[in-house]
Amino acid sequence: MTSLPATTERSLGLVIDLDTCVGCHACVTACKEWNTSAYGAPLSDDDPYGAAPSGTFLNRVHTFEYTGEDGTPKVVHFPKSCLHCADAPCVTVCPTGASLKRVEDGIVLVNEDDCIGCGLCAWACPYGAREMDQAAGIMKKCTLCVDRIDNRNLPEQDRIPACVRTCPTGARHFGDLADPESSVSQLVEKRNGFDLMPEQGTAPVNKYLPPRRNEEISILAPLLDPVTDGAGGFLGWLDRALNRL
C-alpha cells in the first residue's frame, strides 16, 4: 500500500552535523560500495572512465558558501540522502505500491520487483533523494542500510548505515528520532537541529545540525595555545645558551 502509516513504532534516521563535516565524500563512497553489492539492483555507472561519467548515488555531498556574521566567507559541506519523511510525498504518488514507509521503523523503501520505473516519486521528492537507475530501470534510494542495521551476521558496531560507520569526523549519527531519550534526539535538542525545506510539509525524520558560530568554536582553540612557556632540561639549557650568544 502506498498510503502512509499514521504513526510508526520508531523513526529511524540520521542526524548530520554541518559543523563537523569536512566534505571528504567518504560517506558517498561507502554508500555506493555497500549498496551496489548488497540489497537489490546494483548502482550502475554510465561511461565511468569516459569523458562524461554519470551514475546512481544514494548520497551526495554538496558544498555551499555563505557570509559569516563577521563578514568572512564560510564553507559548509552538505551531505544529502533520503530524509525518510513522516509525510513522504514520494510514497503516496507511487501507482504500483512499490514505494512504502515501514510501520515498524519508518524507513522509506522501494520494493524493486513492483517498480515500473515511472519516475513520479523522484519528481515528488523535494530533496532529490531518489535516482532512477539507468541500467535497471527502477528507482533507487537510501534504505538506511536495512541489510546492515538488522543483520546479526555483522559485528554489533557495524550494524549502522555504511555512511555513519565510515565517517572519519563523526559528522553522521544514526538512531531513533521518535525516542526523546535517544542520543540523536538529545543531539538535535542541544544543537538546535533543523528540518530541510520545512515549508514543503514533508516532516523529514533526518535532522541537520547548524554550523557553530565563531564564539562557539572553543573545542580546538585551547589546543592551539602554547603548551609551555619555556623548555627545561638539556634542550632548555641549549636554548638559553644559544640565546645568550
Binding site: 500500500m1 498510503s3 504518488v93 505500491g97
Partner: peptide
C-alpha cells in the same frame, strides 16, 4: 501493477 494504488496515487 499501476492499477492497484488508486486510493492514494493520481497516476
Amino acid at each position: 501493477k499501476a492499477l492497484t494504488q488508486w486510493r492514494s496515487s493520481w497516476l
